[in-house]
Design a protein around this nucleic acid. Structure first.
Lengths: 251, 251
DNA sequence: GCCAGATTAAATGTCAGACATTAAAATGTA
DNA sequence: TACATTTTAATGTCTGACATTTAATCTGGC
C-alpha cells in the first residue's frame, strides 16, 4: 500500500483509496483490524489527522467501523444489506432530485424493475408478505389519510411485492429504486377518486400474487404505471396553468 | 443545523449528518458554497479538524467537492450518474463478496433485471448500440482470448443491451448489478465449447434486438441464465471433487 | 486459588495553533 | 486596456497535547 506525496490529490484521499483497494482485493478481510492511526501515519509518512480523514472517508462508505479503547481500532466492516440499502436510497434520491430526471423516466425505470421480479414473487411469496400487501391496501382505503401517509403505505406495499421474490440482491436493488421515487410521488395530490383507482389496482395485484398468476401481475403493473404517469401529468399541467395565470396577472 | 455535544456519537459524524440532511432536504442547493471550515467550526462549536473529518465523510459520498484558494471552499456537488455508478459498483461488489451471496441468487437477480429492460431495448436500441453488441460478439469468438477478457467483453455486450433501453436510471441500476457480478463470473473457466454456446446465444439476442422482437430477447436471456448457472455449477462440482480427492490423499 | 475492584495502558476523539499551498481577486504599471 | 505582481482567503498538512473509552492487568481480601 503506497501513496504518492507529490500528487496533487489530497493525501487523505490517496490513503483512503489505497486501503479501499486492499479491502476490495481481499488483502484485508472482514473483521480484520487495521493498524492503529499512529502506525498508519508512520507507514504512509503523514500526520495522524491526515490518516483520520482517510479513515472517516472509509467509514462514510461503511467499509470500516471504529472502536475506542484498548484493543480498539478500525476494523474492516462486513457490509450489511441494510447499510448498503440506506446509502443507495440516499444516492438515488439525490440523483433524481439533482439531475432533472423526469418523472416519466424514473417511473418507467421503477416499474420495469418491479415487473422483473413479478414472476419470482408469484412463485415464492410467503403468506406473511401477502398479509402485508392486504393490510396496506386496507390502510390506503381509509378516509382522512394524508397524501404522505398514502405514499408511505404505497412504498410498503410495493416493497412487500419485491421482497416476495425472495432474492436479497433484487430486494436491495429494487427497494432502493422504489423508495428513491417517493419524493417525486409526494408531489402528487391523490384525490379520493384516484386513490380508489389505485386501491383497485393494488387489489388486483395482490389477488394475482396470491393466485400465483405472473402475467396478470405484469399486466396490472403496466396499468398502474400508465395511471401513475397520467396523474403526474395532470399535476404538472395544473401547475403550469397556475403559473401562466399568475404571469398573466403580473403582466 | 444543530448537533448534540453530549451524544456518544462522534461529533464529526453528527456534523456530517446535519449537513447531509440539509442537502437532501434542499436547504443547500447544488453548487451552493458551504461556510468555510473555520465558520463551520465556529457554528458547531468544535475545532477545525473535527469539521474537516465531517467534510471528508461527505466528500466520500460525492455530496460535496472542495476547492482550494481564495473563494474556494466546499460546494454542494451535482451528483453525476458516473459517480453514483462507481460507488454502486464498489458497494455491490463488496456486498456479494462479503455476504456469501450465492452465485445462483446473484445470477437470478442479474438476469431478472436485464430482462426488465429487454422490451424497452427492443423498441429503442440505436444502430450504435447494435454495432457494439455485434463487435463484442465478434471479439468473443476470437481464439486465444483470456477468460478475463472474455468476461469483460461479456459485460460490455450486456451493458449495450441495457443502455439500449434509453433510460439513464435503468442503466445506472443495471450496469451496477452486471458489473458487480464480474468477480463471480471470473471464477468460471470458459472452455472453447462453452464460449461457442454463449456466442450463439449472444447472436440470438443481438438478432432479436435488431428485429425488435422483445419476447425472443426474453426467452434467450432465460436460456443464457440457465446455461450460465449450469457452467457455474460444474465449476463448483469440479472444485469440490478436487478438494475431496486431496482430502482422501491426506487421510 | 479465585473473584471483585482498582489500576494501567492503548487506542480513538478532540482541541489549539501554526505553517504550506493554492488560486482568485485586487492592485499596480506600461 | 492588457499584463504582471501582490494580496488574501481558503483548504491542506503538521505538531503536540489532552480527554475519553475500554480491555487487560494487577492487587488485595476471602
Amino acid at each position: 500500500m503506497k501513496i504518492d506525496p507529490d500528487s496533487t490529490v489530497d493525501l487523505s484521499a490517496q490513503i483512503a483509496k489505497a486501503i479501499r483497494d486492499a479491502i476490495i482485493a481481499g488483502d484485508l478481510i472482514v473483521d480484520q483490524r487495521l493498524p492503529s492511526e499512529a502506525e498508519l501515519a508512520d507507514h504512509f509518512d503523514v500526520s495522524r489527522p491526515t490518516v483520520r480523514e482517510a479513515l472517516k472517508r472509509l467509514a462514510a462508505q461503511s467499509l470500516i467501523r471504529t472502536q475506542r479503547g484498548a484493543s480498539g481500532g478500525a476494523f474492516v466492516n462486513r457490509l450489511r444489506f441494510e447499510d448498503a440499502y440506506a446509502q443507495q436510497v440516499t444516492t438515488s434520491t439525490l440523483l433524481l432530485s439533482m439531475n432533472a430526471v423526469s418523472f416519466d423516466v424514473a417511473c418507467e425505470a421503477r416499474y420495469a424493475l418491479e415487473r422483473a421480479c413479478a414472476p419470482l414473487s408469484a412463485q415464492r411469496r410467503t403468506p406473511d408478505q401477502l398479509a402485508t400487501m392486504r393490510a396496506e391496501i386496507h390502510r390506503q382505503g381509509q378516509p382522512g389519510l394524508t397524501d404522505e401517509a398514502f405514499c408511505a403505505s404505497d412504498v410498503t406495499f410495493h416493497r412487500a411485492l419485491v421482497d416476495g421474490a425472495g432474492n436479497k440482491v433484487l430486494s436491495y436493488q429494487l427497494a432502493g429504486a422504489v423508495e428513491a421515487m417517493q419524493p417525486l410521488m409526494n408531489m402528487i395530490t391523490f384525490t379520493a377518486r384516484s386513490r380508489e383507482a389505485i386501491v383497485a389496482l393494488h387489489t388486483d395485484i395482490a389477488d394475482a400474487v396470491e393466485a400465483q398468476d405472473a402475467p396478470k401481475i405484469d399486466a396490472t403493473l403496466v396499468e398502474l404505471e400508465a395511471y401513475t404517469r397520467e396523474l403526474a401529468h395532470s399535476v404538472v399541467t395544473a401547475r403550469a396553468q397556475k403559473a401562466a395565470e399568475k404571469e398573466h396577472k403580473t403582466a
